[in-house]
């Protein structure tokens, strides 16, 4: 079944075509330069860019993919203005071609991205989805079933990267810029806190880490002033902060796999594009006999291929939406 996927939930205009887990095309047009001056995604600017790009991107994808069987579109969660552009286009296209339409949860789709891997992870497995908007741990007992084990109680991991980047004077988005800066730094230079790491649940908290970086950067941490002596480089700050985020994410993800008796672990979301997170999680998973599945970076960051895969699962389960499909920005 050849499925068209559309995603405009944040700042990427993406259209993809997937044929029974075979990726035919996955076009992603980003907007980073538009949002960089603001230090974060501006919803109105994102929506304005989407509406100018959606038809040309759709045209490119269709030229590459030929006739289709169904349309899947992200309708939750996300920024409402941006979401509405993709939803409107998807509905118009499906209506004009008389194709089945299905609305997809963007976060669940990040898990489904792993089904494009060869070999693909077989449930049961645990999935860690970490991005600029979300940080969630799921247990997937079978295909298409997502049991939430925990999530962030404040900032998302990617949001934490963005805020730390801003504090260190690094560019937006923070994930790639902190990772680049960290390459020349010592991850042990500063011991940043690991909030909730050893707690007996699977929730995360990253706002305290951001505050800690702020105090260290501004030299206001009077209690541990000795630690900051000699630590001046942005690279050390970046490497140490990244290490704290990676440590908590990888530790809790592997522990969740063990707790659920799952021998497979899946990473997804934009933060899963972080090389250090991939390395540390792979080491920890291997040490516990857990097999790690991580899609390539292009399928970790926002993309419509994963929307098409998730749409295919829903359609196979007999789920189909009407022409009155709406956005739901608040779904978690």
């Amino acid at each position: 079944m050849k499925i068209l996927g559309i995603d405009t939930s944040c700042d990427e205009t993406s259209v993809a075509v997937v044929d029974d887990h075979k990726l035919l095309c996955n076009l992603v047009v980003g907007q980073q330069s538009l949002h960089e001056p603001y230090g974060g995604v501006v919803p109105e600017i994102a929506a304005r860019a989407h509406v100018e790009r959606i038809v040309p991107v759709l045209d490119d994808a269709l030229t590459q993919a030929g006739p289709l069987d169904a349309v899947a579109v992200t309708n939750r969660p996300g920024l409402v203005g941006p979401l509405l552009v993709g939803l409107s286009a998807a509905k118009a296209f499906a209506f004009a071609r008389d194709l089945p339409l299905v609305g997809v949860n963007h976060i669940e789709a990040h898990v489904s991205a792993s089904y494009l891997l060869d070999p693909a992870p077989e449930p049961p497995f645990v999935a860690l989805i970490a991005s600029g908007g979300h940080t969630l741990l799921f247990f997937v007992p079978e295909r298409g079933v997502y049991e939430r084990l925990g999530g962030t109680i404040d900032d998302a991991a990617g949001e934490c990267f963005d805020k730390i980047a801003a504090l260190l004077g690094l560019s937006y988005p923070g994930g790639p810029s902190v990772e680049r800066a960290a390459r020349d730094g010592d991850p042990k230079a500063i011991r940043f806190p690991r909030p909730l790491k050893k707690d007996d649940h699977f929730d995360f908290s990253f706002s305290g880490l951001k505050t800690s970086v702020l105090y260290k950067v501004k030299g206001q941490d009077k209690r541990r002033a000795d630690e900051t002596v000699g630590v001046t480089s942005v690279a050390d700050f970046a490497a140490s902060a990244q290490e704290a985020i990676v440590d908590v994410l990888s530790y809790k993800a592997v522990r969740a796999s063990q707790a659920m008796g799952a021998s497979r672990l899946v990473l997804g979301g934009g933060v899963a594009a972080n090389t250090r997170l991939r390395e540390v999680t792979a080491e920890r998973a291997a040490a516990k006999g857990v097999t790690l599945f991580v899609p390539p970076q292009s399928l970790c960051t926002d993309n419509a291929a994963m929307i098409a895969v998730r749409g295919g699962e829903l359609l196979a389960a007999g789920i189909r939406d009407g022409w009155d499909l709406d956005v739901d920005r608040y779904t978690r």
């Binding site: 989407h50 203005g81 409107s88 286009a89 209506f95």
Partner: peptide, 10 residues
């Protein structure tokens, strides 16, 4: 944008 995305895609 809802109008334009719908009209243009149709």
């Amino acid at each position: 944008r809802i109008g334009i995305a719908t009209a243009a895609t149709l």
